[in-house]
Amino acid sequence: MKSLYRKIFFAIISVSILLFSAAAVHAYTAEELELSSQMDADQLPSTAPIKPENDTCLQCHVDGSFSNIWTPTIRWVLFGAAGVALLFGVARSASVWKTREAWVPLPERVINYLDDRFQLTDFLKPILSKPVPDWQRRWWYCLGGLTFFFFIVQGITGIMLAFYYKPTPAEALASIQFIESEVLLGSAFRMIHHWSANAMIIMACGHMLRVFIMGAYKPPRELNWVSGVMLFVMTLAFGFTGYLLPWDQTAYWATTVGTEIAGSIPVIGDLALVFLRAGWNISSLTLSRFFAIHILVLPLITLTFMGLHFIMVRKQGLMKPL
C-alpha cells in the first residue's frame, strides 16, 4: 500500500511539474513576443511581421542582445532538472521491471565501473582503514594540514585575481582597482587572498615550531624536515614577491628596501640584487619577474616539495612523543 501511495504522489508531482513548466515556458514566450512586437511598433510604423532573428529564442541570450541572462538560465536549469529527474524515474522503473532485480544506486555504479578497470578498492582500502591512534588526534597535528588548506585557498583566489591583474607599472594599480570595484566578488577574493596569506605564514610557523619542540625532525625524518624548511622559505618568498604586485608606494618602497638588504649580502649580494630586480633598479621588468615568480615558479616548486613532504610523512608516520 505504501508504495502505491508513493507512486500516486510522484505521479501528481510529475504531472504538476510538467504542467507548471509548460505554463512557464508559455508565459515566458508570450511575454517576449509581446515585448518585441511593441519594440517593433515603436521603431517601425508599419505592422511588419516579426522576423525570425527578432523572435524570442535562446540565441538572443547567447549573442547578448537580451540583457538579463539569469532569469532564463534559472528557468532552464530548474525545469531541465525536473525533466531529467522524470526521465531518470522512468528509466529506473523500466529497468527494474525488465531485469526483475533491485536497482543499483548510481554512486555504486560509478564505483563499480572504476573498480572493474583500475582496482581502486585494493589500493584505497589499506589507506582508508588505517587506524589513527588517539595520541595523533590532537589539534597541534592539524597545523601542517591547515597550511596546506590555506595554500589551496591561495591557489583558487590567486587564479581568480590573475584573470584580471595586469603586471605592468602603468596598469597594475588600475587593474586592482578594477578588481575591487567592478569585478563580481573581486574585493572578496582579494580580501581572502590577503588574509589567507597571513594565515598560511602563521600556520607554517606553528607547524614548524610543533615539529621542532617535539623533536620530530630527528632521524629518520631529517629529509622531511629539510623539505619543510624549503617550503617555509617558499612561503616567505610568496609573501615577498606578492607584496610588490599592487605597485603602490608601500609595495614599491618595501621591495626597494628588501632587495637592497639582499644586495648587501657579501659575495653573492650584487648577483642577488640584479637577479631580483632584473637590473640595477626596480623597473617594469622587476614587476614582470616578481609576477612570474609569484604565479609560476613558486607554485611549481612548492607543489613538488609538498608532494615529497606528504609522501615522506605517509611512509614514515608521525613520531610518537615520549
Binding site: 574585493s187 603602490d248 608606494q249
Partner: peptide
C-alpha cells in the same frame, strides 16, 4: 572584504621616498 576592501596606497613614485618604509 565586500564591505571593507583591502584597498590600495598612492601609485608608486620612484622619485618620492615615503618617510616610513616598513615591510610586511
Amino acid at each position: 572584504g565586500l564591505f571593507f576592501p583591502v584597498g590600495l596606497g598612492a601609485p608608486a613614485d620612484p622619485m618620492n621616498t615615503p618617510i616610513h618604509v616598513k615591510p610586511e
